[in-house]
């Protein structure tokens, strides 16, 4: 039986690991190569490096980090952040990454997803989606000549709001709204050839209060490729919820593993005791 994957994520800046709380307030917390090796020994199913500043600043250090990691760590390695074109993908895969994760570049140039999948195979093209709930309460005036018309218009407006999607896609590390509906975008990238979706809830990220289960489930049910849930993990129960209620195929977490709050091993034991298939 295919097991649920537990994936520690290392946010990397200038070759060092950091973890942002809601994408700001970065804390330096170690060497990525060492961390990846430790996680692998502890039973991580994959490793993800996210070069978080990459979309904004220049970076080359990540290639060296990938090369060094690939010499020591023999589980799948995904690298994301700042990948703009097919050549960036080629360089990272050649350095030893198994998959690359496209976010901003996929939105700005969806054909890159297609080109990447055609050149290197869908299995190594992950599309990362940073999604945020639409503002849920706001005032608007309903027009109409009488009460009945107003009521009808109000119903129509509410209906439109519901159908226009509940989560929007953001790029540039969550700073730029795109207006894209997250569920529609997920379906589109699947069609373009993405092999996997790395879904981050910007609302939940950094809170340690649990994944956005509704978002995770909505995306997971909308596509037929694996979905990795990300953002909000604070304890092993949160991972369990994302993998069951959220229907995710894998869960990504950073802080809970990184500061030694829970080890990957004990997290996996917890999930196994609750009946989930995990590799121990």
């Amino acid at each position: 039986m295919l097991t649920k994957r537990i994936i520690p994520c290392l946010d990397v800046k200038n070759g060092r690991v950091v973890k942002g709380i809601n994408f700001v307030n970065l804390k330096d917390a170690g060497d990525p190569v060492e961390s990846a090796a430790v996680y692998s020994q502890e039973g991580a199913d994959e490793i993800v490096f996210l070069d978080i500043t990459a979309s904004i600043e220049k970076r080359k250090t990540i290639v060296k980090v990938v090369e060094k990691t690939a010499e020591r760590v023999f589980i799948p390695l995904t690298v994301g952040g700042g990948i703009r074109g097919i050549e960036d993908i080629r360089i990272l895969l050649k350095s030893g990454a198994d998959k690359v994760s496209l976010n901003t570049a996929a939105v700005e140039n969806p054909l890159l997803v297609k080109a990447g999948a055609e050149s290197f195979g869908s299995q190594c093209i992950v599309v990362a989606i940073d999604a945020k709930k639409k503002v849920s309460s706001f005032k608007f005036q309903v027009s109409g000549r009488n009460k009945k018309e107003k009521s009808t218009n109000l119903q129509l407006a509410t209906c439109n709001l519901q159908h226009s999607g509940r989560w929007r896609v953001y790029t540039y590390g969550g700073t730029k709204p795109t207006g894209l509906d997250a569920v529609k975008w997920a379906k589109k990238v699947e069609k373009l050839g993405a092999g996997e979706i790395l879904l981050t809830s910007m609302d939940a990220d950094g809170t340690q209060e649990g994944y956005d289960l509704e978002l995770t489930r909505a995306i997971s049910e909308a596509v037929n490729i694996p979905v990795i849930a990300s953002g909000g993990a604070g304890n092993p129960e949160h991972l369990y919820q994302a993998l069951t209620t959220g229907k995710a195929d894998a869960v990504l977490a950073a802080s809970i593993f990184h500061y030694g709050k829970y080890s990957i091993r004990e997290t996996k034991k917890y999930l196994k005791n609750k009946g989930l298939p995990v590799r121990i």
């Binding site: 039986m1 295919l2 097991t3 649920k4 994957r5 199913d45 869908s122 299995q123 092999g195 996997e196 037929n224 490729i225 694996p226 195929d249 894998a250 590799r279």
Partner: peptide
Amino acid sequence: TQKLKIPHMGWNA
């Protein structure tokens, strides 16, 4: 077959 997610990706026995 399309019953489960494709690709079959991850650790299996």
